[in-house]
Design a protein around this nucleic acid. Structure first.
Lengths: 236, 236
DNA sequence: TTTTCGCAACGAACAGTGTTCTCCCATGGA
DNA sequence: TCCATGGGAGAACACTGTTCGTTGCGAAAA
C-alpha cells in the first residue's frame, strides 16, 4: 500500500493500452467468477475471500456485491464454472456402466484440477446450478438407459454424486494425491496407538494407508455401479 | 457488562454454595468440550465460536487456549465425544452384514442427534480420535469376520465411513429430516428449469425429491454392504 | 508461617472475515 | 444539456480465531 498512487489520474496517462483487450475492463459477474477460480487454483479454497477477489481485479470487496449477491453464491458460480469443464457423452444403453464410470472419473479429475475446490462441492447441498445439473441429467439418462426404474435412478444419481464429491474432497486434502507425507504421517501415528485396544487397525496399518493413485476411488466406483446394475438386472 | 461486579469479592460472599457440585468449577478440557457440544446441540455448528464457548462457561475465549490448542482441535474433541455415544457390539461372523448396517445406522442417528455436527465429520480428514477409531476397529472386525481380505476391508471401512458421514451431513442440512419445506422448495425450482435441457430431471422431479425418513440412506447402505459381501463370497 | 514461583485466567488487541451504508461520479437516455 | 440510474469504492460494523502481557491464586519451598 506504500506505492499506492491516485489510480484515476494514473490510468488517465495510460488511456488505451492494448485497445480492447484489457485496459480497465468493466467488472462483470464472469470476470469475478474467473478471478475467484484463479485464486482457488493457485492458493486454495481457504485463501478465497471477497477482499482477495477484489484485489485480483484491482478493486475492493464491496464492488463485487453488485454482481454476485454474497460469497456463498460466488462459490456456487465458481463450482459451476468448474463443472462446465466436464465433458459429457450421450447415453448408450450398451455401455452405460462404463459411461457412468468415465463421467465420474472426469468429474473427479476436473475437481482435483482445481486444488481443494471439492470442498465447495461437499458443503454445497444438492448441486442445482446449470452445469451441475447437466451432469446429473447425463447420469440420469445413463442410469435409465441401463434399465433402472425412476426411483432407483434418482437415488442412484444422488449416491454417485455424493460418493464422487466426498471421495474427491478427501483426496484433495491429502496434499494433491502423490505426496507420501500424509501416508507416512498416519502410518507413524498408527505405530503409537495401543495394540490391545486397536488390534485390527494396528495390524492392518499398511492396508489402511495404501495410497495408490485412483485405486481407492475405483474400488468404491466398482461397488456402486455394480450394485446399481444389479438393481436393474432382475427387474429388466 | 453494565452489571459486572468485582468477581473475586462477589464470590467471597458466596464461598461454598452447594459445596462440591458446581460453585465455580475449574476450567477443564472436559467441561469445555461438553459446553461446545451443548452449543452445537442447541444452536448448530455455525454458532460454535470460541467466544461463545467462553460465554457458556462464564469466561472469555482466551481462557480456553490453555486447554484445547485451537478451534480445530476443539471440534475434533466434540466429534469424538459424540462418537463415544455409539454403542458397539462384538463381531459375529454369522451376522456381520446386519451388524455393520446397525452400526452405521447408530452412527448416523448419533450424529443427527447433534444437529449438523456431521459437518465436522465431513470436513475432518480420516477420523483418528479414540472413539472414532473404536468404531473403525469394530467395523474392521466385522468386515474381516465376513471373510474380506485385508485390503478390501481397509477400503471398505473407509468407504462405509465416508458414505455415512456424507449422507448424514446431507440429511442434516435438510432441516432435520421431517421438514418438507426443503422438498417443496426444490420441487418448485425444478418446475422452473427448461424441460428441453433437463428432460430427465424435470420428468423425475418427484422421484428425485423423495424424502422418506431413512429410505435414501438404506438404499446406499444395501448397495455398499451387498457389494462388499460379494467381494468376500467368491474369494472365500 | 512466609515467600516465592508457576501457571491458569483474562482483558485487550491484532489481523482477518462477510457484508452494508453511503457517498461519488460516469454514462446513457430524454 | 440535463438528469437520473446504477456501478465503483472507501469506511464502517459486527463478527471471527488467536496471541500478548498482566494479574492473581494455589501450592511448593524456605
Amino acid at each position: 500500500m506504500t506505492s499506492a498512487a491516485p489510480r484515476s489520474s494514473w490510468s488517465a496517462h495510460w488511456p488505451a493500452r492494448e485497445q480492447g483487450t484489457s485496459r480497465r475492463q468493466p467488472l462483470t459477474r464472469e470476470r469475478i467468477v474467473e478471478a475467484a477460480l484463479r485464486i482457488v487454483d493457485t492458493e486454495g479454497m481457504d485463501a478465497l475471500s471477497m477482499r482477495r477477489v477484489g484485489q485480483e481485479l484491482h478493486t475492493g470487496a464491496a464492488s463485487l456485491y453488485a454482481h454476485v449477491g454474497n460469497k456463498e453464491e460466488l462459490i456456487e458460480l465458481v463450482l459451476d464454472l468448474a463443472y462446465s469443464e466436464v465433458e459429457l457423452e450421450q447415453p448408450d444403453p450398451a455401455d452405460w456402466q462404463d459411461q457412468i464410470k468415465r463421467l465420474l472419473r472426469r468429474s473427479r479429475d476436473v475437481l482435483l484440477g482445481h486444488r481443494d475446490l471439492a470442498k465447495a462441492a461437499v458443503v454445497a447441498n444438492v448441486p442445482m446450478t446449470p452445469h451441475a445439473m447437466d451432469i446429473a441429467e447425463a447420469m440420469l439418462g445413463m442410469l435409465r438407459a441401463g434399465g433402472l426404474d425412476e426411483q432407483t435412478a434418482a437415488y442412484g444419481v444422488d449416491l454417485l454424486g455424493l460418493y464422487t464429491t466426498a471421495t474427491t474432497f478427501e483426496a484433495s486434502t491429502r496434499g494433491g494425491g502423490n505426496s507420501e507425507e500424509f501416508t507416512d504421517q498416519v502410518r507413524g501415528y498408527f505405530a503409537t496407538i495401543p495394540v490391545d485396544r486397536y488390534p485390527m487397525i494396528t495390524s492392518m496399518a499398511t492396508a489402511l494407508t495404501r495410497n495408490v493413485e485412483g485405486e481407492r476411488f475405483e474400488f468404491g466406483l466398482d461397488i456402486l455401479v455394480a450394485g446399481l446394475a444389479r438393481q436393474a438386472g432382475p427387474a429388466a
